[in-house]
Structure formats: structure tokens, C-alpha cells
Design a protein around this nucleic acid. Sequence first.
DNA 1: CTGAAAGCGCTTACAG
DNA 2: CTGAAAGCGCTTACAG
Lengths: 332, 332
Amino acid sequence: MPSARRVTLAEVAARAGVSRAAASFVLTGRQDMRISETSQQRVLAAAAALGYRPNLTARSLRTSVTRTFGLISDTIAVSPFAGQIVQGAVAAARESGHLLFVAETGGDPAAEEAAVREMVDRQADGLLYAAMFTRPAAVPSSGAGQPTVLVNCLADGAACVIPDELEAGRAAARILLLAGHRGGIYLAGTPEPTVFAAREREEGIEAELAAAGTTLAGTLHCDWWPGHSFEAVRAFLDGGGRPSALICLNDRIALGAYQALAEAGLRIPADVSVVSFDDSDLASWLRPGLTSIALPHYDLGYRATTLLAAGQLDAGVHRIAMPVRARESVRG
Amino acid sequence: MPSARRVTLAEVAARAGVSRAAASFVLTGRQDMRISETSQQRVLAAAAALGYRPNLTARSLRTSVTRTFGLISDTIAVSPFAGQIVQGAVAAARESGHLLFVAETGGDPAAEEAAVREMVDRQADGLLYAAMFTRPAAVPSSGAGQPTVLVNCLADGAACVIPDELEAGRAAARILLLAGHRGGIYLAGTPEPTVFAAREREEGIEAELAAAGTTLAGTLHCDWWPGHSFEAVRAFLDGGGRPSALICLNDRIALGAYQALAEAGLRIPADVSVVSFDDSDLASWLRPGLTSIALPHYDLGYRATTLLAAGQLDAGVHRIAMPVRARESVRG
DNA sequence: CTGAAAGCGCTTACAG
DNA sequence: CTGAAAGCGCTTACAG
């Protein structure tokens, strides 16, 4: 079924008895061209009566602005966080009167180039280039010369919006210090130095502990998955380890830690405090509720899009705060 | 920074020494207009040399097709599933040569109308109207006359793509029957009859059990959240209840059930089998791994977009299979 | 204060 | 086989 034919500016002008130019001026609200009051009223009335909406494709061809942004992401749904970048970007785009194109590339450079080209060919006014995990990125060359903001990734010479993981690490340590912990604070999860979040979280933790005159008692090495952390924590406990607190590098690690602590008959937080990162849904579902430092992915997308809309594209890194979600896993 | 000026069809034609019309014919691959072999080669060579890419805005104005679809969703990130609808739609759109606009409305009718208008004003070739939870929907009137497919929601007279929850319910029951369960099978979670998934899951379960000459031993009523199901299952166990198997209406309910069973010293699956719905990340993280019937949200988005691209818009309901993810929570 | 005209970059009947 | 022309629906200098 073909959609109903749209009312055209020419029809509005005809009904109002003015030229297309005059109609265009009043409808776009340009004040510099002085149109008589009565003409203005007639144009407005005609547009309303006919339900006129400008054909944005035509306008774009003329003005070469589309009020459209393109978001290119490596993944948009493996974790809920990826979706939150999209969500934040969609919200900010709407607020600035833009509509958002979304593409997913799986991280494949050829797919990235193709996605960028599709968007540039459609004259997107700007590009958002997003990554699921904070990391360095090579921006597709097809996007060269396009207004671009990087979301959750870093490249020299570009405007980048990333989470403030360093401060998040400090916050995690601070929570335990405030609860009275000094010794026996263990890190759970391997702080792979090539992983941005891991490196900065650990750095922040160490810095904050050092400032309080203490240090990590040790690290329970494991991949960042529940099964692995379960094994690591169980092995540690079986070997006679008795932590006072665990800083888990993410919530999945905390889940495994919870399971291992439960098996060993240790109570959270009476015997062991646990603090974590990400604030995934899991954190609120665990018993007791897990205190976790939230990933700010919605804000990442929102902020990057706001910068793009405002044309604030100077090279530099914008760090977005990661809020603490305090629950019941740290002793009171 | 203004983007580099784009090469235009006129420039390609000039370099190749042919008219713009001829250049257009060879570049769009139209065979009906016979262009000499040498002209064709020259045009192709010129286009390649200049890095020509057609301005899609101009093409769209002329042809009134944009190779663009619009996805309007109530939410795109509260759960990972919503993102998977977007992901499936993006993938199918790409395969059919379309780019996808994404908008989120929070379910607000005014926001929905506005989003649809924005897309129609930009001449989107078709609309996808999506809901987070399967439910009846009122399609925005601004989209009337537009090619539309509903994703995960239902409206009379529209093409709708939804999960086959009825068959999923049957599958859940079948898993337990095959494992030898007959009596003592309880449903966990209130099967709110107004909730599509709840109603169909329960209906499917009952039908399959009835076909095997048995029935549910009872229902443990609770909201679909871990805390609530924990309480419900604990209360049941405290009252002396000893289920043989639990069918949890979603994974979050199963998480609470796991916690309550663990507290009561009951082992999964040795003492109690557990099967669930959704196959969220949680299902693979729990110990033992939770057998769960997966929500097919990626397929929902993919299929709906494929239908839209193919113009298969006849009113009717397309049911998408929900795959069983067998893990270790059902006795062998 | 208003109108006639050009032009954004394409595609597509229409003549030759 | 190829070219000249019209037109998609707007916006915007340019004359009056």
C-alpha cells in the first residue's frame, strides 16, 4: 500500500495566496525577511489546515544538513551496557532534534568502513563511534573529515568520552576504608594490564589504599567469569585464606565469590565485605545486595551525543563519573 | 571542520566524456538503456578514479526511496533482550541494504507519534514497531499508511512477529517428563493472565502435562523477581513442601528458587529439577547451570525486518521458535 | 515587503 | 545508442 501523498510547500503557499518563498520563510521562522502579519497568519493557517510537514529529504538536499547522527558500535547487545550507550545517544539526539542511525560491526574493520560510508552517503551530520569495552580504537578512514565523537574508546586527536575508572577504583577502596577495613583486603579477578578498566580500577584502588597507609593483601587471579572466580576463591579459602574484604573487578566475579563464600560457610558482610564494579542487574539480585560501582554507559552515549550536537569536537578525553550503588555487602 | 566536498555524478560524466544520464545508467546498472561498451568502461573507470559515491539524499528525493527503516521501541535497554531486537533488526536491515533509525519512547503515546513523524518526514521506507514485553499495542496513527511490522506486540490488521510462548511452555513440561518427572511438578511465579508470556507459558505447560496424564502439583505465587521467589519458595519449603521439580516462569524467579533451595539444603538437580524461561545470562552463570527456554528477541527483530524488506506485510501473526538451552538443572 | 529564479544532485521519460 | 530536459521539494540569494 503506497503511503498517502504528502502535502507540499507549494500547496500551502497556494492556499495562503503567497509565494513558495514567503511560505518557506514563515514556516522556518526566519525573521530577517519581513513578511506582513496577515501573510504570516494565512501561511500558518494553511499549513495547519493541510497538515503540512516539510519533506526533510528535500530540505536536506538543499541545505546539506539532515539532522541525523550515525552511531557505529562494535556490539549493541551482548551486554545490557552496550544497549545503554545506544539509549543515551538516542535520548540526547532527540533532545537536539536529531534522529539516530544505528549500525553494528562486530569490530570488523571492513564492516566499520561500510557502515560509515552508508551513513556519510546519507549525509549524517555527525558520527558516534562506540566500543563495548573501553579500549583504544582505530577510527574508520571513511569517516575522516566527519564530525566525530568516540564513545567508550580512545584515539589520538579525537574527542573521546570514557568512564572514570580510576576514580571508581578509588571509590571502591574508600568504601572499605570507611567501613573500617585495613588489612586483609584482596582483589578478585586478574587485573590484565592491557585492559583499560582493569588497569585503572587497580591503579585507583592501590592509590587510595596507599593514601590510607595500607595496601592490598593479595590478588585472587581468575578470568572475569563466575565459574572462574568461584574456583579461585574456593581454592584460596581451602588453602586457609581468610579475607576481611574482597574487591571484585566486576559483578560476575562477585557472583562466583558469593557462591564460594557460601559454600565455605562465610557470611557477607559479617565475615567478609564484598564490593564490586559494573552494577549490573545481578548486583541488586544477589543476597545480600552487592555494593557496586556503576558503569556509566547511558551517560557515555548521552554526553558524546550532546558534544556532537554542540560541535564541541576538540581532541581530548571526557571522563564520566561512575556512581557508587551502596547495598548490603559491606559491613556497616 | 567541513567535510570534504563530495564528487558528483556530473564530474564523473565529464571525466568519462558522457552525459550525466548515461553515467547514471551505467552506475545504477540499468541494462535496458543500451550504453556502448567503451562508454561503460570509461564511466566505471572515472567513478573509481574519483572515488565517486552517489549522494543518497539526492537520489531519495528523486526516487522517494531512502533505503532506510525506522525502529520505534518502548525501551531499548532495560533488559538485554530489548537490545537484541535492535541487533536483529540492524543485521537484517544491513543484509537488505537498509540503514536503521532507532527511537525510544518509554511507551508514551505522544513520544511514539513524534518518533513516527520524524521518521516519516525523513521518508523511511518502512517502520518497525517494537515492545519490550509481548503485549497488545496501539500503533501510532502517524504511521498509518506506512509499511509496518510489529515486533513482540500484537494489533489487529497488522503483521506481527512474536515468540512462540505456547510451544515454549510445552517444551518446558516435556523436558521434565522426559527426565521421568510425573508428580510434584510446581509452577513458580504468578501466571498473571493479562501477561501474554505468562498466560501462554502456563497454557503450554498444562497442555503438555495433561497429554502425559498428569498435572501441576501447585503454583508458588510470587512476582517475577528473585527476592519474591526466594520468599515464596522458602515459605513453601518451611511448610513442609517437597517439590520434585520447579518450572520457573523466568530466570530471575529461578535465581530466588536456587537461593531458597540452597538454604534448605536441597540439591539441584538431585533433589529438585529446575527449568526456566528466558535464557538470560544468569542461566549460564548459576551453579548448576540452569536449563532455560530462550527468548528469541534477536530473531524477532531479524524476522520482522526481513518481512518489511520483502514487503510481506499481510496481517497475521508470525510465531518465532524459542530454543531450549539444556544445562545441568534437570536430573539426567 | 514580495515574487521569480536558481540550484542542491540525482533519475528517468522523451527525442533524436 | 546518446543527449537535452524536466522534475523530486525544498531554501535562499537576488531583484524589484
